[in-house]
Simulated assay, not measured.
Amino acid sequence: MSVSRIVARIASPKKALTAAALAAATTGLVLTSAPAQAATTSASSAQSIAHKMIPSAAQYNAFSKIVEHESGWNVTATNSSSGAYGLVQALPGSKMSSAGSDWKTNAATQIKWGLDYMNSRYGSPTAAWSFWQSNGWY
Rank of each mutant, 00 (worst) to 15 (best):
V7S: 01
V7K: 01
V7Q: 02
A8N: 03
A8I: 04
A8D: 05
A8H: 06
A8Y: 05
A8W: 03
R9K: 10
R9N: 13
R9G: 12
R9H: 11
I10G: 01
A11Y: 03
A11R: 03
S12F: 12
S12K: 13
S12W: 10
S12G: 13
S12T: 13
P13Q: 13
K14A: 14
K14W: 14
K15L: 10
K15D: 11
A16V: 01
L17V: 01
L17D: 02
L17R: 02
L17F: 04
T18W: 08
A19H: 11
A20E: 07
A20W: 09
A21K: 04
L22E: 13
L22R: 14
A23M: 00
A24M: 05
A24Q: 07
A25V: 07
A25F: 09
T26H: 01
T27R: 12
G28S: 07
G28D: 09
L29E: 12
V30C: 04
V30H: 03
V30R: 04
L31S: 06
T32Q: 10
T32Y: 10
T32D: 07
S33N: 06
A34S: 15
A34D: 15
A34Y: 15
P35G: 02
Q37I: 09
Q37K: 10
A39D: 14
A39M: 14
T40P: 05
T40A: 05
T40R: 04
T41G: 14
S42Q: 10
A43F: 12
S44M: 15
S44Q: 15
S44D: 14
S44W: 15
S44T: 15
S45L: 00
